[in-house]
Simulated scan of single mutants.
Amino acid sequence: MAHSMTAFSRQDSDTAAGSLQIELRSVNQRYLEPHFRLPEALRDLEPMFREALRNRLARGKVECTLRFEPTGNEAALSVDRRRLAALATALGEVRESVPEATMPDALSLLDHPGVLDRRGPDMAAVKQEALALFQAALDDLVAGRAREGEKLAALIRERLIAVNAQVAEVHRLMPHILERQRVQLLERMEAIRAELEPQRLEAELVLLAQKADVDEELDRLTTHVAEVARQLGQPGPVGRRLDFLMQELNREANTLSSKSVVAATTRCAVELKVLIEQMREQIQNIE
């Protein structure tokens, strides 16, 4: 099943510690290329996020943005009274020993290590919530890439039908092509009969016949179309195989064009190249 490399997912969660929001955006890229924007307090989640992406995705540029808004504007504050009493006792001893020493004010006492307890959110719990939220966003992203991939596959299948129609048209034109080839051979033979030896003349006729023979190109076009259709139904990443098959289809269309001896064949070859290019553009977005 073909998956697109283009998708978006956003997930939100309200926890006891605050609100979490995560966004995942993916676009086409030759390899898997993740980028992360995380709060500093949650920065150590990046390796786990990166590993999860690597396990689920093969290609694409993926941008991950995580936001965390703690509940309330300030962390809860409380004074450790025992610590403050011990500090006051120590300051009293300093005052007795060094009367001229300047004593600290209240704010300075609060800045002393251990006196003021700044109780922020439980970051361990927040990290667990963020991991679960990321997993939900990743599941949604993969599902979105699958849905988009189905749409791309449907567009490609439509063009495969059109390619087969052009191949069938060339087959239908074959009697006309062969007749035109026979006329050209006769005209060429009359033009060069007096100039060439019999052996050289025979070689020229064989060369002209080979040049107009397009059966092999038509067979390969049919084979490549069938393989593209098969790859679209295969599990796992198929984008690179499909891109290679587009190159092969284009090569056969070019050869068909170069061998054309009637205008109708040339038109079919041009239409084939247009269809192949349209498929190639869609395949650039397939994982």
Rank of each mutant, 00 (worst) to 15 (best):
M1Q: 06
M1N: 10
H3P: 03
H3I: 13
M5S: 10
F8Y: 15
R10W: 11
D14N: 15
D14Y: 08
D14E: 14
T15S: 10
G18F: 03
G18A: 02
S19T: 13
Q21S: 12
I22P: 00
E23Y: 12
E23S: 12
N28S: 07
R30F: 05
F36R: 04
F36P: 05
F36C: 03
R37S: 09
A41Q: 14
R43D: 08
D44W: 11
L45S: 12
P47Y: 11
M48A: 13
F49M: 14
F49Y: 09
A52H: 12
R54Q: 14
R54A: 15
L57W: 04
L57E: 02
L57I: 11
R67K: 11
P70I: 04
P70L: 02
T71N: 12
E74M: 07
E74R: 14
S78W: 12
V79F: 15
D80Q: 04
D80G: 04
R83I: 12
R83T: 10
A85D: 15
A86P: 06
L87V: 15
T89L: 07
L91F: 08
A101N: 05
D105V: 01
D105N: 14
L110W: 14
P113C: 05
G114L: 02
L116F: 05
D117Q: 15
G120I: 03
A125K: 04
V126T: 01
K127R: 14
Q128K: 13
Q128W: 08
E129F: 08
A130Q: 02
L131A: 06
A136G: 08
D140R: 08
A143H: 02
A143Y: 00
R145A: 09
A146D: 10
E150M: 11
A153H: 04
A154E: 11
A154N: 13
E158L: 12
I161R: 13
A162H: 11
A162K: 11
V163D: 02
N164Y: 09
V167S: 02
V167Y: 01
E169H: 06
V170C: 03
H171K: 13
M174V: 11
L178V: 09
L178T: 07
Q181M: 11
Q184V: 01
L186T: 13
M189F: 10
A191S: 15
I192E: 12
A194N: 09
A194R: 05
E195V: 09
E197K: 09
E197S: 14
E202D: 13
A203N: 09
V206A: 13
L207N: 02
K211N: 05
D213C: 01
V214F: 06
D215M: 03
D215H: 08
L218K: 04
R220F: 05
V228W: 09
A229I: 00
A229N: 12
L232W: 04
L232G: 04
L232Q: 00
G233D: 12
P235R: 05
P237L: 08
V238G: 02
R240V: 06
R240Y: 08
R241L: 13
L242C: 03
F244E: 06
L245K: 08
L245C: 00
Q247R: 12
L249P: 02
R251E: 01
E252Y: 07
A253W: 03
N254W: 02
T255C: 01
S257N: 10
A264W: 06
T265H: 03
T266Q: 13
R267H: 15
R267W: 09
A269R: 05
K273G: 10
L275T: 06
I276M: 01
I276P: 03
Q284Y: 01
N285Y: 01
I286C: 06
